[in-house]
Every structure is written in C-alpha cells, then in structure tokens.
C-alpha cells in the first residue's frame, strides 16, 4: 500500500520496529506464579506469567477480600523470603479494612514477607508503583485501588508493564469496586467469593473463589474455575462437591473453543 505521506510511513516503520523489539509479549516469560491446580495451570501454560501485569477485578466491593487474598496467596505460595510489596492508599483501611497479618498467617502465608506501602492519594500510588515494579527481587507487587482509576490509562499501564518486564517483577493490579477498562495486562480476572464447603455443624469452610478469565493475551478467555485454598498443602484445588454446593459443570466451559462442537 502506498502511504499518503512521508511522515506517516516513517511512523509506521518506527512502530513496526518497536513492536519487533520492545513489545511486552516479545520476550518469553521467566517463570510462572502457579496455583498448584493442575488443570488451571496447564490451561494458562504454567500459571500467571512472571514479569507481566495481571489484573484482578472485584466488581462488587464485598468480594474485595476474596480478590485480595487470591492475589496474596498466589504471590506468597511460592515460598522463599522475597518480600511481597503491597501498595494501597491510606483511606483503603477505612473502606475495605486494614490488612490483617494474623489472618494471612492463618491462611498459611508468612506475614513477615509483607511490605505495606500506604500513599496519600492515587497519584502517589501510581508513582510509587512505578518505583516498586522497577525494583527486582520482590515476590510480586500488588497495587490495590478502589473504584475507577482514571490515572491508570493505557500510557500509565504500559509504563508499569514495561517496568515490570524489564525488572522481571510480577505486577498484580487489584481493582476493587471497578469495572474492567482497556489495559495492556497479560491476564484479567474477575474474582467472586464462592460458597465454601461446609465443615462439621455447618461451619464455613476453607476459602473458595469463583474465577473467570476475562482476557488473556496468550489465548482464549472466558474460562471459569471454582477453586478452594488448601492451606496445609499450600495449593489451590477444586472445590470438593457436597450437597450444599451446585455442581459446576453446568456453568463451566470445559473447552473454551466451543464445547458444542466437540
């Protein structure tokens, strides 16, 4: 195709060059944050890729604790003593509650690895997140935000993603009470609390999560999982069915490429 003008052709060439060398997906992932659930990990090619951005949405504010715990457990379950950087604004404690270290210990995580960074406003949150993702040696960087985050546009998101890729850190964006917006994230998840498997005397059981893969750069999206956290084994596993929980097959697309065709 003949370009209408010389500058435009130059720009196109430049974009092609950039895409060939510097795109976020141009480098294979250095590793994966695995859940320990075989089907989940293999569906994603090993788990959530290290050195990329992953978004966790809790559309309803009440599911915030589930989304936050899922992100934290995913980052902490690898073991080791690399710190987990958790960035949030100061008013998040009043809104969603303070991060409670004994609760993390109860989930089998090590609260000593947690480094909590509280900023005054979302602008500073973004600035500190940029610094945090550029620092190698963390288990993951969790950036918790509330509601719409207009400052996190495509440019800001791409800057974060490039920083994370260069330093090899995993950025987990925790978007509470927010609807998905366009972004450069590798994966995007919707997380909802699921009814737990009842224990004796109908007591609430281990944490259960309903996950939906909303978007994935490396493959098809739309897959749903329902996972339980087993803190003794430090893995996620299928929610063991019991009479109180509906079977999942009806809701779950086993093969994302058209289950009807199979």
């Amino acid at each position: 195709m003949r370009e209408s003008s010389q500058p435009l052709a130059g720009l196109r060439q430049r974009i092609a060059r950039l895409a060939a060398t510097g795109g976020p997906a141009s480098r294979p992932a250095e590793g994966w944050l695995a859940t320990g659930h075989g089907a989940f990990d293999s569906a994603l090619g090993g788990g959530l890729a290290v050195g990329r951005t992953h978004e966790f949405f809790a559309a309803d504010a009440l599911d915030g604790a589930s989304a936050a715990a899922f992100a934290a457990l995913l980052a902490l379950r690898g073991g080791g003593d690399a710190p987990l950087l958790w960035l949030r604004t100061v008013d998040a404690g009043r809104r969603t509650g303070h991060i409670y270290a004994p609760g993390i210990a109860e989930l089998g995580g090590d609260p000593d690895r947690l480094l909590l960074i509280e900023t005054a406003d979302p602008k500073m949150l973004l600035a500190c997140a940029n610094d945090a993702v550029r620092c190698a040696g963390s288990a993951a960087v969790i950036v918790e935000s509330w509601g719409k985050f207009p400052l996190l546009d495509l440019t800001a998101g791409r800057r974060l993603t490039l920083g994370a890729r260069d330093a090899g850190t995993t950025l987990l964006m925790l978007r509470l009470n927010a609807a998905p917006t366009p972004s450069v994230a590798e994966t995007r998840w919707s997380i909802v609390a699921a009814p737990s498997r009842a224990l004796a005397a109908d007591a609430p059981g281990a944490p259960a999560f309903d996950l939906e893969l909303l978007r994935w750069r490396g493959g098809p999206a739309g897959t749903r999982w329902r996972l339980d956290w087993d803190k003794d084994e430090q893995i996620f596993r299928d929610t063991a069915l019991s009479g109180a929980v509906l079977p999942l097959a009806a809701r779950r697309a086993v093969h994302p490429f058209g289950a009807e065709a199979a």
Binding site: A65, Y100, P207, K231
Partner: peptide
C-alpha cells in the same frame, strides 16, 4: 479453616 479475617 482460617479463624482470623484477611481484612480487619
């Protein structure tokens, strides 16, 4: 199951 909450 965890006896203490994640958010307090």
């Amino acid at each position: 199951p965890p006896l203490r909450p994640f958010y307090l």
